[in-house]
Write a protein that binds this DNA or RNA. Structure first.
Lengths: 76, 76
DNA sequence: ACTTTACGTCAAGTATCCTTTACATTCAAT
DNA sequence: ATTGAATGTAAAGGATACTTGACGTAAAGT
């Protein structure tokens, strides 16, 4: 199960640096970097904050990719 | 920042025991109990799984309550 | 009475998220 | 060439999520 996200795009859309975004969210810059780079997925509270900051939803911001190896039929 | 959820209601709506739900999600029963009891919020991946299991969204399943007491950080 | 099912607690350990510090690179200004 | 802003890496430690196992309670059905 992979978890991609559109944080970079949204951050740039809002003209924020990683530093500024981190500050706004009350987390460290490293956290932003790690999430953008896909090193780990954020906690649910942080995911909520991110979505809120970008006026979108968690589902829109984070893309949940079911990784089923062997399965080829894409449903949805 | 509080994070309530409707896991109990949805679980019962789907006629699942905590044990069965845990099994379905691939987590321990303790994890379900802790989430339902509000001891902590789930990880984002688990939140996604829960929402998916109940055919709903994270935003619907988890209620994000902005806590407005004693703001320390002047952000922006 | 006994068993089963479901829900709950507690505690100790592992895994993952997040912070902090320090340092490196790139690019756009001087 | 140097400065500053923005992005990146790495590593150690702290905080939170999750597991495992042991145990308690209560209800429902033999």
């Amino acid at each position: 199960m992979l978890l991609k996200n559109h944080v970079v795009e949204y951050r740039k859309k809002y003209g924020l640096s990683q530093d500024r975004l981190a500050e706004k969210l009350g987390v460290s810059r490293q956290t932003i970097i790690s999430i953008e780079k896909g090193k780990y997925s954020p906690s649910l509270p942080l995911a909520f904050l991110l979505a809120k900051t970008f006026n979108t939803t968690i589902e829109e911001l984070f893309v949940f990719e079911e990784e089923k190896k062997g399965k080829r039929d894409a449903k949805q």
